[in-house]
Design a protein around this nucleic acid. Structure first.
Lengths: 179, 179
DNA sequence: ATAAGCATGTAATAAGTTACATGATTGT
DNA sequence: ACAATCATGTAACTTATTACATGCTTAT
């Protein structure tokens, strides 16, 4: 898959100016169930995008000789984002080691499968809770309409987490009662 | 994520001897919702694994000067696979361009979102059908028990596809009725 | 004071895709 | 005859992760 780092950045900056660190954080906290980016992708890309005129950087001088950059999207940046929105989507790339193990297991691996299922269940419950908190943070907001698209994705994320939790918890019971 | 190519291969070869081409095919048809591998990963890895004594190759001489290799797992290969089964799972890596667009959209992209949702719905319906066919191919088999683990994953895959289809179809209706 | 989190960046390494090259077999 | 699918492999390229380096700010 072609790298999409610049579109994620552009998409997030449409709403508010952000630093590279905040961008990374936002992706990790809110988008982790369908996307990830590392600092090694984000920081060089921010510089390249500024170079291409897609972003403006506001330099926040902190005390000492350290600098902090808060980026804003330019008109050209909005254009590039909207052009990408129009393009066809490439196929997903997914790699889940847990699913791989679940799929390839046989009876000789039952104990390992139960262990991985328990971990899987716990992680998905935690993620579910964090999505529900994020969802609640929207409740009561005036400009709910502006967040319609995020909310719809969040709804899907929550339903997916429910599915994963239910499935793994039933599966654990089945395997344990089989002995 | 560390590459897992050898474990996928090992896992598939535990059940039956396969060629590299068949391995790729199997991953594409049955495991695509949580895993993918390309020929550029599979063929070099098969040679490395043979070198490491994890596989034996049976050379199927075809007419002409072409050769075809059917691989079998060795005892050492089974050991390596079982050791991996015991290891903790790394975090998933997922990249879905469609989800990214759904999440980052706003009203100015509504038409694009509807288009991508329709494509998304269609692709997921097709995938659902192919999983249901694969599921049916197990029905009536004597050794159902041996496929318990695959069936459980298939069940999850089918439920996930249902969720994606239902969600996207509702979402399309919502967006269309909003005009 | 000190730990956790905020903040930016690069270089080395690893992983993964794609295009290319080749040719056999099977079904229509 | 022709197309689709079976079949193997490599080289060039792109993408992504990780470890390292540095130092500020905020809350306890």
């Amino acid at each position: 898959m072609k790298k999409k780092t610049r579109y994620v950045i552009l998409g997030l900056l449409r709403d508010e100016a952000m630093t590279g660190y905040e961008i990374k954080n936002c992706i990790d906290r809110r988008m982790s169930f369908f996307w990830q980016e590392s600092y090694g992708q984000i920081y060089p890309e921010l510089n390249a995008m500024q170079n291409d005129g897609l972003l403006d950087a506001r330099e926040d001088q902190q005390s000492g000789n350290r600098v902090k950059f808060r980026y804003t999207i330019t008109e050209k940046g909005r254009q590039v984002f909207n052009d990408w929105m129009t393009e066809e989507c490439e196929k997903d790339t997914v790699r889940s080691e847990a699913f791989l193990k679940f799929f390839l297991a046989n009876d000789s691996n039952q104990a390992d499968v139960i262990h991985h299922l328990e971990k899987f269940h716990q992680q998905n419950r935690e993620r579910l809770e964090s999505y529900e908190m994020f969802m609640k943070s929207f409740q009561g907001l005036e400009d709910m309409h502006n967040h319609k698209y995020i909310l719809k994705m969040l709804e899907l994320g929550i339903r997916q987490q429910h599915l994963y939790c239910d499935w793994s918890s039933d599966y654990i019971d089945e395997l344990k009662n089989n002995d």
